[in-house]
Nucleic acid binder design. Structure first.
Lengths: 226, 226
DNA sequence: ACCTGAACACCGTTCAAGT
DNA sequence: ACCTGAACACCGTTCAAGT
């Protein structure tokens, strides 16, 4: 490593793309901006990277490479995987948008693998494994997408708590006949913590997985053993 | 209604945008294509619609206006909401991508309201309502995003089952040391039904919500009553 | 083998000018 | 009040030409 410091390389391109995404957001990554920062021509990048989608996938893949599954129990390990993904998105909000678009199947497959191994360790019967693990993955991807959308909706000077505060007031002022629920939880929206909310959802799914698999068979039986 | 058949109107613009999205996908909606179909100038649309984001939000909102919450039990009603969203995405794949981007907060708020009312009916304690309902919403949005991504990855002539079959074979051929889980469930991936998988996830979350709220307090107590 | 940079075929959006 | 359509300021991608 550390060879070829001056010449262009896929590694250096992806690295610079991440810098651009971190500092200027999704819309900041441009082949022109990228080539300017790399002091090269716009077309040169295409020698090392097929197109923008591949570049984004590589950037996402790199940023999530460190997702592990440490924990003394399967439950803890599942939470650890989820937290790793959450923290990565927190540090690089653009990851959320990419994950939700699935352009990087390799990345989601790796996360699914980590989750699935722990779901297996939970004692879930073989025929229920796929649905259980993918429920966790889809939930994580949903939160990822929302976080990215929230980050995108901000930018213009406002802080997160200002946005949440305004949204909470909006909910509190809705028509009581049509939106009783939103009104009732407006206060919880204002005071909630994103990470706690995220983990509460993970815990609900884990609880559901454990309970359903303890019950012996799922409601949709006769589908596994044939 | 049915007035102004010839003149441009927000209604007619949104309607035509949906046609374009349905027939040509997300990339098919262009102000040039739209104005050509409406036999008007590209700039005329801006008189009725602020920009493309607003147009997409209006299209998404319209396509999901029919989401209801019919069902004899809260569980059934939650499933009904989820199925309505799933079916709408199935019919108009571009909705998934929009929902995951949250450009249409009104739409997601309405879905959250429907889900939340039923979660309330489930007997969930007040301080756990927000997390429970948003877990369901985030899961639904996650699946929505994945469906949209799958639809996007297809287009080029291949059928859904061909794509799934190829992916299943890939999983089966992965390194057993690194991807034991993916290998184990490759068959389930091949044979699974998208709707059944989606509903299985909903059921897991419902089971988790019921079990956690029956237990009296959640792990994260002391946060609600103060 | 790798890089340059002009050119191509698009975008969303604006805006003077029309009716 | 509403519409026209040329123009602006961008995009991602290609490709002849260079080294």
């Amino acid at each position: 490593m550390a060879r070829n410091t001056d010449g262009l390389s896929r590694e250096r391109i992806v690295e610079t793309a991440v810098e651009l995404l971190d500092s200027a957001g999704e819309s900041g990554l441009t082949f022109r901006a990228l080539s300017a920062r790399l002091k090269t021509g716009a077309g040169a990048i295409y020698w090392h990277v097929a197109n923008k989608d591949e570049l984004l996938a590589a950037a996402t893949d790199g940023a999530l490479a460190g997702v592990t599954a440490a924990g003394r129990t399967p439950e803890e390990a599942i939470r650890a995987v989820a937290i790793d993904v959450f923290d990565a998105i927190d540090a690089h909000p653009w990851i959320g948008g990419q994950l939700a678009r699935l352009t990087s199947q390799r990345t989601t497959l790796r996360i699914l693998e980590r989750l699935g191994q722990q779901v297996q360790a939970l004692g879930v019967p073989a025929e229920a494994l796929f649905y259980a693990a993918s429920a966790l993955l889809n939930y994580i991807l949903g939160v990822a997408g929302q976080n990215a959308a929230n980050a995108r909706a901000q930018t213009w000077g406002t802080t997160r708590s200002e946005v949440i505060g305004a949204e909470s007031e909006l909910w509190a002022s809705l028509d009581p006949a049509e939106f009783p629920f939103a009104r009732a939880i407006a206060g919880q929206l204002r005071d909630h913590d994103d990470r706690e909310q995220f983990l509460a959802g993970i815990d609900l799914i884990i609880a559901g997985i454990k309970q359903t698999s303890e019950a012996g068979t799922t409601q949709t039986s006769e589908s596994g053993i044939k």
